[in-house]
Nucleic acid binder design. Structure first.
Lengths: 238, 238
DNA sequence: CATCGGGTTTGACCTGTGTCATTGTACCCT
DNA sequence: AGGGTACAATGACACAGGTCAAACCCGATG
């Protein structure tokens, strides 16, 4: 194995611990690597997969940003999540062997691919991998529980505050600034995810801006008063 | 092994194919059985587990009906799902080794219990079990996607119509009447799940009743015009 | 059988968010 | 540089669903 090989695999990937290989030993990571296809480019606007596509592989986001969209017969669509570096795409497809939502790159991105049948075989020999994967699936369930809470019982302001803080946390986790961020999605995307209309999202951002919680210039957002923003996530204050 | 033993295990369980053992061979089911504790009673109103409880076991509902409730600091709660015979409880806890919601029996129920560490070991030796379990987790993710769609982009009438049809389908799947059902939950529970207030749920039920779609008497609901009800799930008609 | 209490229904009114329409802004392309 | 095409901000108004309050129903309990 030469230097080039080393650089291209999970073992030397900077986000290794955020991603599928998290918690695996070097040998295990190496074994996993053998089955993966690394760093395939997905350009901004491209679909990684679409509803109805047969499910073959899981995708780990190596860099970039995606949204997953569920579409309803009557044209309405719902964004079910935004995914960033280190997160997995395709988990929803395991159940029916077909993708049930669209995955769209919101900026130029790269993904690593692993055929799911091979992945399951690896799970048989690597307890650790299987265990971590179970946790991964469970985490996704928990994440969605929280979105249900947000959509089912929070008011618009609370929803947006939660959204922004969550985004900031995920940036921080990736050693990116959690203060200044550039949103990868449109106001309409945010609205779809939060169960609001884009006008409402826009008005709320302006409000937060006017109140000195944020500085908003188009898609650049700077969090000026994180504590105050965090308070807005809940009804308590006024 | 005597007759009583036989009756108490998955192999002879009437809902075997709806439950954890679905798709397993007789030997596999037998092996699984060894590790399970069968048919523990949970009385109406009892908590199967609560937020913060350490996660040890998965629960398969052998009979009865549950709700899972996510609670927010400020007292608000969100019902994340209603579970019936054959469905699994506890999946959300795998991620953090602690339960993150409450599970409450809405009628006298019984569950079968399997320690999760033993379950994972079984998964190592039974490809099939692991494969099915992955699908199970994925199905839960898909289910929650659909709830997100419902909460994020549907109007109250559509939400309730979806809820009723979904409930009817699940009854049918269990060979129970999908026409006459008795709701196990209060109007408030339904409202919480659907992101509506109980008054709204009540009014909608009355409306469907007046329009001849349903016959509603307290918690007894009879679906009179399934097609018309199904149409209400979407915006198209008027 | 009467009482009690949680759950349900219904009404009148209010408000947060959606809708529709206009204008503003920024970036891409030639 | 200019001009076109998204995306975004803002205002005026409408309405679905929330809120508050009252009455009702019905099964459990003594």
């Amino acid at each position: 194995m030469n230097l080039h090989d080393l650089k291209s695999v999970c073992g030397s990937c900077t986000i290794r611990e955020l991603c599928l290989p998290a918690g695996l030993s070097d040998e295990e990571v190496h074994l996993l690597d053998q089955h993966m296809e690394h760093r395939q480019v997905v350009s901004k606007g491209d679909y990684l997969y679409r509803v109805g596509d047969p499910f073959r592989s899981l995708f780990a986001i190596s860099s970039g940003f995606f949204k997953t969209v569920l579409l309803h017969e009557d044209g309405r669509g719902q964004i079910t999540g935004f995914q960033m570096m280190g997160e997995l795409l395709g988990l929803e497809a395991i159940h029916s062997d077909h993708h049930v939502c669209d995955a769209v790159a919101l900026e130029d991105s790269a993904v690593c691919t692993i055929p799911f049948d091979q992945f399951e075989q690896l799970g048989q020999v690597m307890v650790n991998l299987q265990h971590r994967f179970n946790k991964n699936l469970s985490r996704e369930i928990v994440r969605e529980h929280n979105v249900m809470m947000l959509l089912g019982s929070m008011r618009s302001e609370e929803r947006l505050a939660n959204f922004l803080i969550d985004l900031a946390n995920r940036h921080a986790h990736r050693h990116q600034s959690s203060v200044e961020m550039t949103l990868r999605m449109t106001r309409e995307d945010i609205g779809s995810y939060l169960g609001l209309k884009l006008e409402t999202v826009s008005r709320l951002l302006s409000r937060f801006h006017d109140e000195g919680l944020l500085e908003v210039r188009g898609r650049r957002v700077k969090i000026l008063d994180r504590n105050a923003l965090a308070l807005r996530r809940t009804e308590a204050q006024h």
